[in-house]
Amino acid sequence: MSLNAPHEGPHAKLIYMANQIAKFMESKPHAEGVELLASHINDFWEPRMRRHLFEVLDAGGTGLRPLVLEAASKIKRPALAA
């Protein structure tokens, strides 16, 4: 199963990046993979990026790999822009 190519749709690149992380985490034991995917995004994604990710998630998460959807509840929803 291939990852989506970037540059299709406004959040395509972000979806692609989330899926790349998921791909790596999928080779780990499932629970650990979910946990680490969420913490990776929390640790490295600036709130703007997470906000966009939630826009995708809130719209149903089309294009995201299942592991990203599963980790969504553990990803920190950013506060409104400062």
Binding site: K13, D43, F44, W45, E46, P47, R48, M49, P78
Partner: peptide, 18 residues
């Protein structure tokens, strides 16, 4: 306490206008 933008993210955010 939140992480900031990495270079590629800065450029994406610039193109987006933020």
């Amino acid at each position: 306490p939140e992480p900031g933008l990495r270079i590629p993210n800065m450029l994406d955010a610039a193109v987006e206008g933020t």
